[in-house]
């Protein structure tokens, strides 16, 4: 286990390498010198209290926000500061903390739109498979805005499946969803992992983190404070203090 360093726990074949990454918003140090690696075929969990910089890190890696400084290398490409669509085309897909639906499009159109750039061949067949995998086929023609919150999470997850990405960033994908939907998502993650896809997952649900993630990276106040297996992490006093507070 490594404390304050997320870059050492992998097996040495990282698909994502982040080094000394900084992003400040005025006086707020949202990401303050983060370094971490995510290895191929790994499911890495990213945990930390609210405001610790997890979603900002996702925004930086996916190109939604430009870093102040630091390096982000994805699959051999330097992507720091590149446009989001250019990064997506390299094989990186993400979900958002609050589902980012294409509200006025049907469920099927949402999936097809995800494949419209670069993955169009066989998109309709893959959309039908994805609908079946996520058990959304009965609402295929419904408008996305008419779905329940849980179904919207499923649909957003379906869109990243349609991207045929090599690295998927999931931002609290099971937060607040019905256990049945959670089960569907976890089964889909397992299947995609068998296909060799890597995941970096922001999650507050510790049971999911324990059952799904190979490795856990802990962030606090814009920095990585620990990295290791679930058992290592729960025995780490600094992590416990981060979550439970420091003794007065």
């Amino acid at each position: 286990m490594s404390v304050a360093d997320g870059k050492t726990a992998g097996a040495g074949d990282p698909i994502l390498v982040v080094r000394e990454l900084y992003r400040h918003f005025g006086g707020i140090k949202a990401v303050n010198g983060v370094s971490l690696d995510v290895d191929r075929r790994e499911i890495a969990g990213l945990i930390g209290p609210n405001g610790s910089g997890k979603s900002t890190l996702f925004n930086l890696v996916s190109g939604a926000v430009t870093p102040d400084r630091g390096q982000i290398r994805f699959d051999g490409h330097e992507i720091g500061g590149r446009k989001a669509h250019a990064i997506a085309r390299l094989g990186l897909a993400r979900t958002f903390q609050i589902p980012a639906m294409f509200d006025n499009m049907s469920v099927t159109e949402n999936l097809l739109a995800a494949a419209a750039e670069g993955h169009w061949q066989g998109a309709r067949e893959r959309a039908a498979e994805t609908l079946a995998l996520l058990k959304l086929d009965h609402v295929a023609d419904n408008r996305a805005s008419d779905l329940s919150g849980g179904q919207q999470k499923l649909l957003e997850f379906g869109r990243v499946i349609m991207r045929q990405a090599s690295l998927i960033l999931l931002d609290e994908v099971t937060a607040g969803v019905h256990p049945n939907i959670r089960k569907i998502i976890l089964e889909a993650i397992a299947r995609l992992r068998e296909r060799g896809i890597t995941f970096l997952v922001i999650e507050h649900d510790m049971e999911m983190v324990r059952n799904v993630c190979d490795r856990i990276i802990v962030m606090d106040a814009g920095r990585v404070v620990a990295s290791g297996s679930f058992n290592d992490i729960v025995r780490n006093s600094e992590v416990m203090q981060t979550y439970l507070g420091r003794p007065q």
Binding site: A86, A100, D103, E117
Partner: peptide, 24 residues
């Protein structure tokens, strides 16, 4: 056409459309 899907996607959520590889 898929061009229409891209246009409607950016109308509904520009950031998500970018994240889908669409040069909005």
């Amino acid at each position: 056409s898929r061009f229409g899907l891209k246009v409607k996607a950016l109308r509904d959520h520009e950031l998500a459309a970018e994240a889908m590889g669409i040069n909005t």
